[in-house]
């Protein structure tokens, strides 16, 4: 699914210093690490944010060269980023935005656009799963949403766009336990043995609900340790200092 080889990236100064990571279809990988370790940078570089310069390495998504693609092409190839800070777009109806997104991805995949009726049926079934009421669809994208609503909206978008690889960038930050469970439920509903996930988080808490296959620890732009889900528990107990002196 995703193969990252020796990825280096910088934004005014080097941040990623040689990331190697392979995610197979159906796997859930978690990346943990202290503040400033480069976790969010990795998410943004994979999604194609232009402020970040890739200085070395390569990334393949389903065998295709990811780094040469525009962000919207990456989305069409099935890469989805759930933002740490979802962006507000005043005046743009949430449902309209979702329909534009779904149909532009369908267009790039040479599929016919969903008409209004099909789209509304689809979205109504999804918002139930995520615990939103319909009024939510008629509000402007993320405008005036609470932190929890914004994150749930990210998961709703993910459910609508059905990506091959979903990256969750600190999706748990700012969520209370109920919202966290709701978000995790949405994510888990998408686990189908083929779809892969990269879950970036600061805390082990989220991983109680979205149980990873592999846990990686990132420090100073490198993955210094990988292991099973029990690694997350160990980190929670001992802190990152335990690993930092001992790469």
């Amino acid at each position: 699914m995703l193969a990252i080889k020796n990825l280096h990236a910088s934004i005014s100064q080097p941040i990623l210093r040689g990331i190697n990571l392979t995610i197979n279809p159906g796997e859930v990988h978690a990346i943990m690490g202290p503040n400033g370790s480069g976790k969010s940078t990795l998410s943004n570089v994979l999604a194609g944010r232009e402020e970040y310069q890739v200085t070395d390495g390569e990334v393949q998504l389903n065998g295709k060269d990811l780094l040469s693609m525009q962000p919207e092409e990456r989305a069409a190839q099935g890469l989805f980023l759930a933002f740490q800070y979802p962006v507000e777009i005043p005046g743009v109806n949430n449902m309209y935005f979702l329909k534009a997104a779904v149909n532009s991805i369908r267009k790039q995949r040479n599929l016919s656009p969903l008409d209004a009726v099909d789209f509304i049926q689809l979205i109504k079934s999804k918002i139930k799963e995520i615990g939103f009421d319909e009024s939510f669809l008629h509000r402007a994208v993320n405008e005036g949403f609470s932190g929890g609503e914004k994150k749930r909206n990210e998961v709703l978008q993910m459910m609508m766009l059905e990506p091959h690889l979903a990256i969750l960038d600190e999706t748990d930050s700012g969520l209370d336990i109920d919202a966290l469970q709701m978000v995790a439920k949405g994510v888990n509903s998408l686990r189908d043995g083929k779809r892969s996930f990269l879950v970036v988080t600061h805390y082990q808490r989220l991983l109680n609900y979205i149980v990873p296959d592999v846990v990686h620890v990132m420090v100073q732009g490198k993955i210094i340790k990988s292991g099973g889900k029990e690694l997350a528990l160990e980190l929670e107990e001992k802190g990152y200092g335990w690993l930092e002196g001992n790469p």
Binding site: G48, E72, V87, Q157
Partner: peptide, 11 residues
């Protein structure tokens, strides 16, 4: 805003 839209596949 632009990056957000593009990440969702919108040109």
């Amino acid at each position: 805003q632009l990056f957000y839209c593009k990440q969702r596949g919108i040109s």
